[in-house]
Amino acid sequence: MDDKLLIEMFNCRSEEAIKCLSEKYGATMYSVSYNILNKHEDAEECVNDAYVGIWNAIPPTNPDSLCAFACRVTRNISLTRYKRNNAAKRKGMAHTDFEEISEFIPDERTVSEELEAKEITETLNFWLSKLNRENLYIFMRRYWYMDSVTDIAKNTELSDAAVYLRIDRMKKSLLKFLTERGILI
């Protein structure tokens, strides 16, 4: 089903919209969540929460890309859940392999207080737009979708080491870029 039609269904408050969204992007949303939480039940709950979140958001939101919007909502909910789980240090919490983008920023560095997240997003968009297709895939899969390096290597048919090498170079490049533009101080 076309995304525009699907969004229209949300706008018309058709409950079929959630079913169609689930059929079309449910698996992707689940994998976004599972990469963060590494626990089936938690991931399923987060995806269900995301359906509700999307239902509440559209309208008035009219996303350019429903897929990206659905993934974004799922990611935010899953990260919140992850932090909550982690803070409570619940027993049996699975180990996760993901790394958030800020984790490679040295502790002594911070962001200018005056800067809004929106301005930083624009700078990050600019930096991402400079990456070639393969590097963009590697970086986004690692830090946005939280894929493991091994999975990225498998999908790109590169070795794990080559992916690490690329990520390392991109981290350095991003740090330099953020510093030059006065984002990191």
Partner: peptide, 21 residues
């Protein structure tokens, strides 16, 4: 500051999210 960076990265343009699906 780091939280801000994480938040900002979570909101990068949809084109990057979709194109790397």
């Amino acid at each position: 500051g780091k939280n801000k960076i994480n938040e900002a990265f979570g909101n990068v343009d949809s084109v990057f999210i979709e194109s790397t699906l």
